[in-house]
Design a protein around this nucleic acid. Structure first.
Lengths: 265, 265
DNA sequence: TAGTGGTCTAGACCACACT
DNA sequence: GTGTGGTCTAGACCACTAG
C-alpha cells in the first residue's frame, strides 16, 4: 500500500499548506496518520501500528517513525504508553489558538488609520488591587497609563494599564509619544508569558465617556497579565465597543498551525 | 540556571515537568535555552550557538541538540536558517491557547448544577445564510437546534446550532435527551477542526427573552464553525450573559501548554 | 564555495508496564 | 519475563544560502 519515499501523495492531506513540494518522510508519516485520525477512520481509543510495524511499512529507521509519532503525541492526538502501544486520544475540549495582536495592527487590519493619545499618566505606589493584578508587595512603584486608541475618527479601544516599575524602570521616563504603551512594552520586554481573560461587560460611566458610547452599552473586555521570568511586568485592561472588535481563534491539532496567519474573511 | 521555580499564582512557564527529577538531555538543553530567551539574556535577533558548539558544550551527539532546537523553533522562539545559524525571533503578536470547553463543564466548574432544555428543533433545507456558515449548497438538509443551558437556576447560555445532515445524518433521529447537542456532536464526530469568533453584543429581543435578561444587555457571543476532513459539520452561536462567563487564555512559548487546564477563577 | 541546518540510518541501552 | 516506547550515538548525505 505504500510505495516508498517520494511518490504517492497519500490520502488528501488537508494541510491547508501549499504542500505541492516534497515532504520529508517523517512529515509524510505524520500527515498520513493525522489524516486517518481527523477523517475518523481511526477513532479515539484505536491503537495505531507499533513503531516496528511502521518502520517496515515505510521502510525506514525507527527514529523516523518515532519522530512523527512523538510530534503527534505532543499535539495531543496520540497517547503513547510503554509496552501497550500508541493510541488515538479522546478529545476532551477544544483548544484553540488565539492571536492577540497589537491594537494598531488590529485597526490597520480593518483598513483604518490608527492613532492614540495618552489620556492619563501617573506614578504611584502599589496598593491592594495591584496585589492581585501584579505579583507585587504593597508600596512598590508602579505607573498607571491610560491610552485611547482611534481607528479612523472613532474611538476604537481604551487601554488602561499598570506597569511594574521594578520590572521595567525605563517606563518611568518614557513619554509614549511614538509607540503606544503596549507596543513599547512589547519592544522593551519581548518574550513574556501572559494570561488573558476575555469577557463582555456594559460600559461604566468613565469608559462610556472615553469611548463616546452610551453608558451600559456592550463592550468586549480583554484583561491581560504579563510576566517575565517569574516577575510580573504589567496588567492591562482593553475595552472595545462591541461593534469595533472581534477575536478569531482557530483550532487544529497541529502545533504547526500555531504560527499561521489567522485571517478570516 | 535551571532552578526550580517558587510557588506563585501566575501562570508562569509551566513545563509540567518535575524539575528536580530526571530530565532527558534534550529536554534540559531546550529548557536552558528557553530560559535564556525568556529572561531576556538572549534578546531577539541574537544568534544562539551552532549545533556543533552545543554538542561540545553538552558532550552529546548532534541529533540531541537538534531535537531541542527544532522544538524551540516549532514553538516559535527560534528561527533557523541554513548557513546562517539559529536566531532568537522577534515576537510579533501574542498567541494564546484558548480552552473551549463543553458548556456543561463550564457550569460545573463554577460549582453549579447544569441542565439544559431543547427549545426548538427543526429540519429544513439550507438557504442563503448557511452558505457562509456551513460550506453547503442550497437545498441540502440541515437541522436547527436551539438549546437553553442553566447553571443552577439561572439561564447560563443560549446555544443556537445548525447541523449539516449530510455530514452527520445520525443527528436527524437524535433527541438530545441525555447529551446536549454540543456534547453529542463531540462524541459523534471527534477530532474536528474549528474556527471561533468571539465578540460582545447586546442581547436582541429573542435572546433577551430566552436568557431572561433585559434587551440590549451585554453578552459574550462565541460563534464556532466546525469541519471534519474538508466537510463542514456544524455552526453554533453561544450567547452568555456578561456576568455568567469569562474565557481564559494563556500564552507560553511551548506547545506543551496546549493541553493544560485553564481554570476560570 | 564552504558551512549551516534538515534529514536519515542502524544500531544501542534503558525504564516501564503489561502479563 | 518481555515488548513497548524514550533516549541517545556516531556517523552520513543533502539542500540551501551567505559571503
Amino acid at each position: 500500500m505504500n510505495e516508498s519515499r517520494a511518490a504517492a501523495k497519500g490520502p488528501k492531506v488537508d494541510d491547508s499548506r501549499p504542500e505541492g513540494a516534497v515532504m520529508s518522510l517523517h512529515q509524510r508519516i505524520r500527515a498520513e496518520i493525522q489524516a486517518q485520525i481527523l477523517s475518523g477512520e481511526w477513532p479515539p481509543g484505536r491503537r495505531v501500528p507499533f513503531e516496528h510495524e511502521l518502520t517496515q511499512r515505510y521502510k525506514c529507521s525507527r527514529m523516523t517513525v518515532s519522530k512523527a509519532l512523538t510530534e503527534l503525541a505532543n499535539a495531543g492526538l496520540l497517547a503513547r504508553r510503554r509496552k501497550a502501544g500508541t493510541f488515538v486520544t479522546r478529545p476532551h475540549s477544544q483548544a484553540a489558538v488565539l492571536e492577540i495582536r497589537d491594537v494598531k495592527a488590529e485597526a490597520t487590519a480593518l483598513g483604518l488609520a490608527h492613532r492614540f493619545e495618552i489620556a492619563r499618566r501617573r506614578k504611584r505606589k502599589s496598593g491592594r488591587a495591584d496585589l492581585r493584578r501584579l505579583d507585587m508587595k504593597a508600596g512598590e512603584p508602579v505607573l498607571d497609563v491610560t491610552c485611547r486608541h482611534y481607528a479612523g475618527s472613532q474611538p476604537f479601544c481604551l487601554e488602561e494599564r499598570t506597569i511594574n516599575l521594578l520590572a521595567v524602570p525605563e517606563a518611568q521616563a518614557e513619554p509614549f509619544a511614538e509607540l503606544s504603551p503596549g507596543a513599547w512594552l512589547t519592544r522593551q520586554v519581548p518574550w513574556t508569558v501572559a494570561e488573558h481573560k476575555i469577557r463582555a461587560a456594559g460600559a461604566d460611566r468613565a469608559t462610556a465617556a472615553a469611548l463616546k458610547i452610551p453608558e451600559g452599552s456592550p463592550c468586549l473586555v480583554i484583561e491581560r497579565r504579563t510576566w517575565r521570568a517569574e516577575k510580573s511586568v504589567t496588567y492591562v485592561k482593553l475595552t472595545y465597543p462591541a461593534e469595533a472588535h472581534e477575536l478569531v481563534a482557530r483550532f487544529a491539532p497541529s502545533e504547526r498551525l500555531t504560527r499561521e496567519s489567522a485571517n478570516v474573511d
